[in-house]
């Protein structure tokens, strides 16, 4: 078996705030194989973005990683212990080198007063040994590759002259021009119209195949996950409650939270289905529930859930579920 490209173990992230230490991510573990698309799903505040940013050490200065936390990148050049990196210069191996990231709002990722082309060239000069002329050629080629018409003209334009969909394409072009091993895509299509989203998702799938890179795909949209991911991890309040192959998790969710998310989703295959909200609100990170983090909203919680953190039980097919009830009994009933 080949080594995973990324291996995250016991990742616990806390933020120092005026109100004390706030736990954003707790005991998170996952691997991403080379060329694999891992979907990370969860609501706002579930810690999915914080987890992703940790891979590039992009979290703010008040971030504390617990000593046991490990993020390891297995690159051809050797193993990189991401959380052990000390100097800014060393982090360049990761940032824009082995890993690139694209965001929900591409406007915020482009400097408004520098042309799109100039920014693409700049990062290539930093991360590769290309000459300026070669970097320019590669950038224009990448713009063409992501389906931007008249790439040479677009190269000289500013981000505000691009439409939302074009900006997202340009950002993908920029992120991929350095040939990263892993692309982190944080809600890359959330701000786009469905028709444009479909185009961008198609493009991303093509590029994965062509470049053989892995993707960590962060989204709240289970439909987008079903269309793109090989495996999926569901996060709630900083913990992964369920992870496994995308078919298994979406077709037959085992954790009550995953089931709740699917039942809340309006589905086009059953217009008469009631929309069932997950009861209650997500608790404040300052008041993390004891035991299972989901027990305050869980319709099937038992006394044990209030006290004990559920262990990960591994099921046939490779799915892992952190639920006392699943560990004790057969998997929860499927949705639908």
């Amino acid at each position: 078996m080949t080594k995973p490209l990324v291996s995250v173990q016991d990742l616990t992230i806390r933020f120092r705030t005026d109100e004390g230490l706030v736990t954003a991510v707790e005991d998170v573990a996952f691997d991403i194989a080379p060329g694999e698309v891992l979907g990370l799903v969860g609501e706002s505040g579930s810690g999915k973005s914080v987890t992703a940013k940790a891979l590039m050490r992009l979290n703010a200065g008040n971030t504390r990683y617990d000593p046991a936390s490990r993020i390891v990148l297995n690159l051809p050049e050797g193993e990189v212990d991401v959380l052990g990196l000390k100097r800014e210069r060393d982090m360049m191996v990761v940032r824009g080198g082995a890993i690139s990231m694209i965001f929900q709002e591409p406007m915020a990722s482009f400097a408004p007063a520098i042309t799109v082309g100039e920014q693409m060239v700049e990062q290539l000069l930093i991360h590769t040994s290309l000459t300026r002329a070669a970097a320019r050629d590669l950038s224009i080629e990448m713009l063409a590759r992501v389906g931007i018409p008249e790439p040479a003209r677009r190269f000289g334009q500013y981000a505000f002259e691009f439409s939302g969909g074009m900006r997202q394409r340009a950002m993908i072009a920029m992120a991929l021009s350095t040939r990263p091993r892993l692309l982190i895509a944080d809600e890359p299509t959330t701000a786009l119209d469905v028709t444009i989203q479909a185009q961008v998702l198609d493009l991303m799938k093509d590029l994965v195949r062509e470049f053989g890179m892995a993707i960590l795909f962060i989204t709240h949209d289970l439909g987008v996950i079903a269309q793109t991911a090989d495996r999926v991890a569901v996060m709630y309040l900083g913990r992964i409650v369920e992870k496994g192959p995308v078919r298994q998790v979406i077709r037959a969710p085992a954790h009550p939270y995953t089931l709740g998310l699917l039942n809340a989703l309006p589905r086009l295959d059953d217009l008469d289905a009631e929309l069932t909200p997950v009861p209650g609100d997500i608790p404040s990170p300052l008041e993390r529930p004891h035991g299972c983090v989901f027990h305050t909203r869980c319709p099937v919680a038992i006394a044990r859930c209030r006290e004990e953190v559920p262990p990960n039980s591994v099921q046939p097919g490779g799915r892992q579920v952190a639920c006392h009830l699943v560990a004790a009994e057969a998997p929860a009933e499927a949705v639908g």
Binding site: V194, T195, Q197, A198, Q199, L201, D202, K205, D221, L222, G223, V224, A226, Q227, A229, V246, R247, I250, R251, L262, L265, R267, L268, D269
Partner: peptide, 19 residues
Amino acid sequence: LLSAIPSLDPDDRGSAEKL
């Protein structure tokens, strides 16, 4: 528009008509 909605079925990939 209907076709562009991402299907929840992982086996129904890429069948959508793209605008």
